[in-house]
């Protein structure tokens, strides 16, 4: 029983960064912007989170630094694509390339240093209930943030007027503009929100998942988060389901490697990436589902005419 609980706990830890980054990107894409820089913002969040935590000794300051760095870095993307109307695909790619380089440079002195870890929640009495205690009351704080974030984004997108406006911008920025909605302002805020989420996801990697700094430690999770948004057909709760499936694949291959299953470890390591491809194929086969949910103006540059 304990083993099962432990495996579930590690799955949740593996799924949380994917979930947070994907939820952020979901809001960005719902506003009609495709930011392929998730991997870059995530790794910047990871290095900032580790650095601030390591230098101040407080993981909470590290967490704030990770969020701030993600938001700041996404601002670069926002200025380029929204104010200068550059190609979103290419700009997102360059954000990732720059993020991987900058984080590597900033982190040179952090390599091999011991990091700080965010403490797990510990409520006397509740956390020690067998089985459910640890799962519900004993996880790291970011786990709870990720669940709350999913609920909040669902409520925001589908139950508030501002959320409706945001979705309308994603479906037709020209119509929204004609209605007098400040398209660019909404999109700026959405992109920065997405950046903050990616930064938080990165902070989870370097403050909870493996509290140390390793170059390229995001290992393609930013890209998997992007795939999750497509997989979830832009619905928050489906993103959560997808993130946990991927968390399970990630943990499953690690356990399989540890058990010494007679399959080369490299093949097991490539499973999450192959699973991403398979999942994308399965979901895109259903043309109607994709057509109905894809924000119609996704990825198209918008220059307001005056």
């Amino acid at each position: 029983m304990d083993i099962t609980v432990n495996i579930l706990l590690t799955i949740a830890t593996a799924a949380t960064p994917l979930l947070i980054a994907a939820i952020g990107e979901l809001v960005v894409e719902r506003s009609g912007v495709l930011n392929l820089g998730v991997e870059g913002m995530m790794i910047m969040g990871a290095v900032a989170g580790f650095g601030a935590g390591y230098l101040t000794g407080s993981p909470w300051i590290g967490l704030l630094a990770a969020i701030a760095m993600g938001a700041l870095f996404s601002l670069l993307f926002a200025v380029m694509t929204l104010s200068l109307a550059t190609n979103q695909v290419a700009t997102g790619l360059s954000l990732t390339l720059l993020g991987l380089g900058l984080s590597g440079m900033m982190g040179t002195s952090f390599v091999g240093q011991p990091g700080v870890r965010l403490p797990n929640l510990d409520i006397p009495g509740l956390s020690s209930i067998p089985i459910v205690g640890k799962l519900i009351f004993g996880q790291d704080p970011i786990f709870y943030i990720s669940i709350a974030l999913t609920a909040a984004v669902t409520w925001f997108l589908f139950k508030t007027r501002t959320g409706l406006t945001l979705r309308s911008i994603g479906d037709s920025h020209t119509s929204a503009h004609a209605l007098g909605i400040k398209v660019i302002r909404y999109r700026y805020l959405a992109v920065i929100f997405g950046g903050a989420c990616a930064g938080l996801a990165g902070g989870h990697l370097s403050l909870v998942y493996t509290p140390q700094w390793v170059e390229n430690m995001s290992a393609g999770r930013g890209w998997i988060a992007l795939a999750l948004v497509v997989f979830a057909s832009w619905r928050p709760w489906r993103v959560l389901a997808g993130a946990y499936i991927f968390g399970a694949v990630w943990i499953g291959q690690l356990h399989a490697q540890a058990f010494g299953i007679p399959v080369p470890s490299q093949m097991l390591s490539s499973l999450p990436y192959l699973a991403t491809v398979v999942v994308l194929v399965l979901i895109s086969r259903n043309k109607r589902l994709t057509m109905m949910n894809t924000p119609a103006s996704l990825g198209q540059p918008f220059v307001p005419d005056r």
């Binding site: 550059t86 700009t91 720059l98 993020g99 380089g101």
Partner: peptide, 25 residues
């Protein structure tokens, strides 16, 4: 650190994309 290479390359792409805006606007 030789990571400075990636930083240079990333910045270059950023500026190239930004300057391309000047062609149309």
């Amino acid at each position: 650190s030789d990571k400075v290479v990636r930083v240079f390359q990333g910045m270059l792409l950023f500026f190239v994309l930004g300057c391309d805006t000047l062609i149309h606007y």
